[in-house]
Amino acid sequence: MTKKVKGQTVKLGLAILVLTLILSGFIYDRFQSENTLTSDSEVTVLRAKNANVFEPVLPDNPVILPDDFSFQNEYQHGWWHFFANVADRNGNQYGIQWSYFRIASQDRERSGWQSPQLFISNIVISSGQKVWKEQRIARGGIGQAGMIPAPFKIWIDNWMWRSLGRTPFPGQLLTETDTFSLNIRSNTAGPFVLPGDRGYVAKHDLLPIASHKVTMPFLDVVGEITLDGEASIRVFGSAWMSKEWGSGLLAEKQKGWDWFVLNLDDETTLSVNRYRHFKQMPHVFGTLSTNDGKVVQLQDENIQFEPVKLTTLPNNKTLPLQWRVVIPKYQVDLTVSAVNDQLWLPFIIPYWEGPIKTEGSHNVTGFMQLTGY
């Protein structure tokens, strides 16, 4: 066995050991069957058995900004997602994805090495042919990861999102790895949006499974990326960001979700979600937002949202990487496909996520996220 392979094996073993020790209250079986569309354990890190000891997500507790940009450690989970579609001066296109997760093993806060908080961050850059990705994992309580609400800063090791005020914007995302780095600056080009009922987003038709959420669907971005040690590439484009938090965010019979963010034009963004259940119909909902402040909440009866083609990846997983999204009332009729099929991300919380391309009523950019497969 080569030194490189040995090093990778040791890193993987340490990551699994850390996760097992810190999240002893969770049921998490990372290495289970890879069969198509039947796996639910890959997202069970969001389905904790002791979720009832954390603060529940209730509809009479609206999201309040900028206060709710801070951590809410009384809830079990919290995470940020940032997607950017950018291009360089030659027209070469790239997708940029940043995720930052906070997961607690118990509701009682403790200092130092006794902290119940685990932090996970993922960075992904992709082109139509290649993917660059890395993950960082950190304990809470020892300064390796955390948050400062004012001025706003979230970090893990030398990766950070920071701004000069109490909100993330104008903001700067800085990351550096052995094979790539990025320095991206983002600013708002439209309002923040509270999906659902003032930020309360239901995930199930019958059970009280929900989260609190705020989205930032209108962002302009500019910055630099470096890939494989080559010269820095100046890029610019648009982006979408969200923050979501709650406790026990999946019911026991939920398999995972399918999530699309679609920039219909410079003024309108569509987000559609499909939460899949065992032996039940999926729970489908969406949000249509415009940069003049209009927000339309879409229910199942407003959306036709189904996979139309399966793709088998080199790891033998079969995923629906082509979809049909139809919203007749708003003249949306799209066939959505992945730009680069090879964006299965084998992280601690594994999922497929990447830029999309479309045919149909709109010339769309955006992102697709598929979990639980």
Score class of each variant (00 low, 15 high):
Trp161Asn: 00
Pro62Cys: 06
Gly372Thr: 05
His362Asp: 08
Phe54Thr: 04
Tyr373Lys: 01
Met241Phe: 05
Ser232Leu: 07
Thr2Glu: 08
Ser238Asp: 08
Glu224Lys: 13
Val63Gly: 09
Asn187Pro: 00
Ser41His: 13
Asp220Ile: 05
Leu46Val: 04
Phe347Arg: 05
Lys294Phe: 07
Val295Lys: 11
Thr318Gly: 08
Asp157Pro: 01
Leu173Asp: 00
Leu313Ile: 10
Pro191Cys: 11
Arg198Leu: 11
Thr318Phe: 02
Leu164Cys: 08
Gln76Thr: 02
Asn73Phe: 14
Gln331Pro: 02
Asn90Phe: 13
Asn315Ala: 08
Gln144Ile: 11
Tyr330Leu: 10
Ile356His: 06
Pro62Met: 07
Thr365Cys: 07
Glu244Asp: 10
Ile303Pro: 07
Phe31Gln: 12
Val193Met: 05
Val284Ile: 15
Ile209Gln: 04
Gly286Arg: 07
Tyr100Asn: 13
Ser99Val: 10
Ser337Asn: 10
Trp259Ala: 00
Leu17Phe: 10
Leu182Ser: 09
Ala338Ser: 15
Trp352Val: 00
Arg274Val: 04
Phe218Val: 07
Ala251Asn: 09
Ile225Asn: 03
Gly165Thr: 12
Ala84Thr: 02
Phe236Thr: 14
Met147Ser: 11
Val332Leu: 08
Gly256Arg: 08
Asn263Tyr: 12
Phe305Gln: 08
Glu55Trp: 07
Leu321Ala: 04
Asp205Pro: 05
Trp352Ser: 01
Pro191Val: 09
Val124Lys: 12
Thr20Leu: 11
Val325Ile: 15
Gly95Cys: 09
Gly128Thr: 13
Gln322Cys: 12
Glu74Gln: 15
Gly95Val: 07
Gly141Ala: 09
Ser242Met: 14
Val86His: 02
Ile137Pro: 03
Arg108Pro: 01
Phe69Ile: 06
Asp88Thr: 08
Tyr94Asp: 01
Lys309Tyr: 10
Thr167Leu: 07
Ala239Met: 00
Leu313Val: 07
Met216Trp: 13
Glu267Met: 05
Ile303Arg: 05
Leu370Thr: 09
Asp266Tyr: 10
Thr175Asn: 11
Asp67Tyr: 15
Asn52Asp: 14
Ala210Cys: 06
Pro217Thr: 09
Ile16His: 03
Pro191Arg: 06
Leu334Ala: 03
Phe101Ala: 06
Ile22His: 13
Val261Phe: 03
Arg47Val: 12
Gly199Ser: 04
Thr335Trp: 05
Lys3Leu: 12
Arg162Gly: 04
Gln32Thr: 13
Met368His: 13
Lys329His: 10
Leu321Asp: 02
Arg108Ile: 15
Leu65Val: 10
Thr358Asp: 00
